[in-house]
């Protein structure tokens, strides 16, 4: 049985997840979880990653920790983790 994590989807990406603010995804690393998300929600991977890795205006957290300060996309998951996607938002109006 592959590890399954809960992924918090931010408002701007919910158009891709049929409005769901939280979805399940399987994978033993963050990269594998994103691949699994892409299978169910095509287009989401492109919003999170570019050819160099995680887009610079998006942060992905495992628990409270930014994966940039863990092992990046190779950060391993045991299952049951909460993954949070936090995009830059500028609004103050």
């Amino acid at each position: 049985m592959e590890a399954s994590s809960t992924v918090r989807i931010p408002t701007p990406l919910r158009t891709l997840t049929a409005g769901n603010d939280e979805v399940k995804a399987a994978g033993a690393t963050v990269a594998a979880v994103i691949d699994d998300l892409e299978k169910n929600y095509p287009g989401i991977k492109d919003r999170l990653l570019d050819e160099k890795g995680v887009r610079r205006f998006v942060n992905i957290y495992v628990g409270e920790e930014d994966i940039r300060f863990l092992e990046g996309l190779k950060t391993e998951l045991k299952g049951g983790e909460q993954i949070t996607i936090v995009p830059a938002i500028a609004g103050g109006c």
């Binding site: 701007p12 919003r47 205006f57 938002i89 500028a90 109006c93």
Partner: peptide, 25 residues
Amino acid sequence: CLYPEPPPPHLAPSCQEAGVLGILP
């Protein structure tokens, strides 16, 4: 440190374009 680069403009709609719950701010 948090956001090294901004999103491209088409991925960053303003409140005027996207709406905002009045109480949120």
